[in-house]
Design a protein around this nucleic acid. Sequence first.
DNA 1: GTTCTGACCTGAA
DNA 2: ATTCAGGCCAGAA
Length: 103
Amino acid sequence: MTSTDTSRQTQLNALYTALAAIPAGRVVTYGQLASLAGRPGAARWVGSVLNKLPVDTQLPWHRVVAAGGRIALPALEAQKQCRRLAAEGVPNKGRIDLALYGW
DNA sequence: GTTCTGACCTGAA
DNA sequence: ATTCAGGCCAGAA
């Protein structure tokens, strides 16, 4: 195996760890999560990973939002995410205040 | 090998 | 506030 493969796997693990480390009532942006995973600028990569994430995952994927507290998901999924966040103590109306609930 | 696409980000008009 | 363009990473065609 090449060193890039192992490295990529390690970063992926770091991403899951960082995401799991996000407490309820707190949200992070894709770029920030990418930085936490040791890959600044790889926000798109994070989105790709979350998209392929299984439906029965235990990871708090709903705590990940786009820059400015904007929801990156389509209307339906976004509504579900907003609902979930509100249930965790993050009141939002289609947009989240990162100044208050941001990491 | 190139080209397109996607749960992105920033800055400018 | 909304729209556009350039840049970023990785996987699929």
